Amino acid sequence: MSSAETTVAESNTTDEVVAELRRRSSFVFVSHVKPDGDTLGAGLALGLALKQLGKRVAYFQQDPVPRNLRFLPDSEDVTRDVAADLPADTLWVFCDMSDFTRAGEYLPAIPREHMLDIDHHLGNSHFGAFNYVLPTEASTGTCVLRLLHALGVTITPEIATCILTTIMTDTGAFMHTNTTPAVLRMSAEMIELGADKPLITDQIFANKRFAATKLLGMALERAVLDDDGRFCWTYVDEAMLREANADGEDTEEIVQHLRAVDGVECAALFKDYEGAVRVSLRSRGRINVQAAAAMLGGGGHFMASGLTYPERDLRKAVDGVHAALRAQGL
């Protein structure tokens, strides 16, 4: 067993998970709400691989596939509908979520014995009968890559593109500190196997709608520096979305601009629309935003986390998150 697999005692080994994948005939891959390239790319990669082994594969996702991820192979098959004729041994594979509730309210009731949890988040609840949780991995997709190698399947250009998408998403196009030599070697392997890096770069990082650019300008105009310049935050609300003709997908890069401000140690974007205040947190490395988010019912990673504030009150959310960050040493 590798050191990554011994990090969390409750996790199954690669061999145990691979044996279960071989034993089952049918799979449904589950993405979390507000899907990103890691949750979707990881599920699509493993689904494409299991099809090689003659398995039945479906994909469940409550929300539509985001515009910038529709290039991914098999993404056209992602739906919130569940087939009525699923075999009794169907395994539901949850990718990139610390608890199955992150899949949303449309997820049907599933017995725990039919759940596999694949993740790299700190604080994962190990909700499945089978749990493959490797917190030292850069993405859920790199966890999946371990399974692909152990399964002995052919990593096609389509699978390689899905895996590289997960890596580039969760490393911020190789800018974050989780970009280790091992991650770069895995990325090179995927490119050698046919992953379309230019397509990933264009679709996810270099192809923004004009509405998103307008919304970014509005959010930056409202940005606030607190704590002697260590904390930068702003918000997006429904009025701003209407004015920019934007939607929730257009908010994705805003928090990164806040984090990039000179002297800022922690950044927050408050998204006050769709009936809730959701918060995206980013850290430069000193402040543990995962611990801060956990204090308010959220989670994620040391340097990138999120939460939904318990009340829909923007002022209370700003104050509550600020207090949680200060408790972590801001």
Rank of each mutant, 00 (worst) to 15 (best):
S3N: 12
A4S: 13
E5Y: 10
T6I: 12
T6K: 14
V8N: 00
E10K: 12
S11Y: 13
N12Q: 14
D15Y: 09
D15K: 13
R22V: 13
R22H: 10
F27D: 10
S31H: 05
G37W: 07
T39P: 01
L40F: 03
L44S: 04
L48E: 10
L50V: 08
G54R: 05
K55S: 05
K55P: 07
R56N: 12
R56C: 10
F60T: 06
Q62T: 07
P66Y: 02
N68P: 02
L69V: 05
L72T: 05
P73Q: 02
P73R: 01
D74A: 14
S75G: 04
R80F: 14
V82R: 12
L86T: 09
D89G: 00
D89H: 04
T90H: 03
S98D: 07
D99V: 13
R102Y: 11
A103H: 12
G104E: 05
A109T: 13
R112E: 15
D119N: 03
L122G: 13
G123Q: 07
N124P: 09
G128N: 01
N131W: 00
T136Y: 07
S139C: 10
C143T: 10
L147A: 00
G152P: 07
V153L: 09
T154Y: 13
P157I: 00
I159A: 05
C162R: 10
T169S: 14
A173C: 11
F174D: 03
M175G: 09
H176T: 02
T177G: 08
N178V: 03
T179R: 09
P181L: 10
E189K: 06
M190R: 02
P198Y: 00
P198S: 00
I200H: 06
T201K: 04
I204S: 01
A206D: 14
N207A: 13
R209M: 05
A211K: 08
T213M: 08
L215Y: 03
M218R: 12
A219R: 13
A223Q: 02
V224N: 04
D228G: 15
D228T: 06
D228Q: 14
R230D: 02
Y235Q: 09
V236P: 01
E238K: 05
E238F: 01
R242A: 14
A246Y: 09
A246W: 12
E249K: 01
D250T: 00
E253D: 15
V255G: 00
H257F: 15
A260H: 02
G263A: 00
A267H: 01
F270W: 08
D272Q: 06
R278V: 07
V279R: 01
R286Y: 04
I287P: 06
V289E: 09
Q290R: 13
A292T: 04
M295F: 11
G297A: 03
G298M: 04
H301A: 01
F302Q: 14
A304W: 14
A304L: 11
A304N: 07
L307P: 11
T308Q: 15
R312A: 01
D313Y: 02
R315V: 11
A317Q: 13
V318L: 07
D319P: 02
D319V: 08
G329R: 11
L330K: 03
